[in-house]
Write a protein that binds this DNA or RNA. Sequence first.
DNA 1: AAGACGTGGAG
DNA 2: TCTCCAAGTCT
Length: 367
Amino acid sequence: MKTSPAPTTGRALAKELLDWYDRHHRDLPWRISPPMAARGVRPDPYHIWLSEVMLQQTTVQAVKAYFAKFVTRWPTVDALAAAPSEDVMAAWAGLGYYARARNLKKCAEAVASLHGGRFPDTEDGLRSLPGIGDYTAAAVAAIAFNRPAAVMDGNVERVISRLYAVDVPLPGSKPAMKARVAELTPSDRPGDFAQAMMDLGATICTPRRPACALCPFRRDCRALEGDDPERFPVKAAKKEKPVRLGAAFVAVDLDGNVLLRRRVETGLLGGMTEVPTTDWNSRKDGETGTSAAPFAAEWKACGTVTHVFTHFELRLSIYRFHGPAPNDVRIHGWWEDVANLDAQALPTVMKKAISQAIPEAFPIERG
DNA sequence: AAGACGTGGAG
DNA sequence: TCTCCAAGTCT
């Protein structure tokens, strides 16, 4: 039988965590580490904002290369604001959730034109910008501007739900948990506290097999006391993914150009580039045929591509055409040199479709 | 307020 | 193979 943990004040918990962070923080490209911060070095709000948007529902590992690419190409928010949208979308291609890229551009333009190139330094000011929600507003306010904002992301939800053994399922428990975070957040180093909570969730208080023996909260954690930390956070059950079917048409002309189109600005893969496809629906496989092709020709079936999106699974039948480019008025879009496909705003599912039809199109990415 | 919205890595 | 999920936001 375990004894109850000694009652620990929020202030003491915060100190435990910050001490842990000083020794075990991760070094990340956009982060000013505690030793540097102690010398008065401050983070670049542009870097913090850019990284936070990229990190929404995305792993640190995936973000690193994109972050480096963006800050090299667009070193300031003004530079990003001045960039063509197509360039930004192409640079974002592969990272997913493309509304983030559209809003990134809009936000940069707003900061450049409405705020003279400087980010607002309050939660409310940040929250009003495109693509900045509760989490990102609090994170940028705390990390970039040292405001005592309560930062709660998936990591913090996990840490808090375990620390207090929260039985109410997410997302219903969110407001109560955010109140807990607000209690704990110190006025002294709120940015480091937020980053420490997230590092703790990412490296110690992990979804599976948490390393509780190494946790600065191990003496205070109600979930550990109950002996089953993995039970938290409690979440609502998720639905199963429907399957949708469609066909994609990869046309290559005699000069080695591929027919591409731009998708509409909103919705799935909005504003990104694609090869012509049918609608994606639940009709039986093979029913589509080539009647929906962008032009009448000898389309050759060359297999299928499966791609899993967040809320459905897509099975695309791939068709290939090679021959003279038809002069067909129904074709909207453009013919792009195969050698130039890497510079296009092609989402992963479209790269898969093109690779299936013409394997030499993306030689480096073939595995 | 519940569903739309991508992708790739880990176990 | 398959399930989960990673620093959420918008409508």
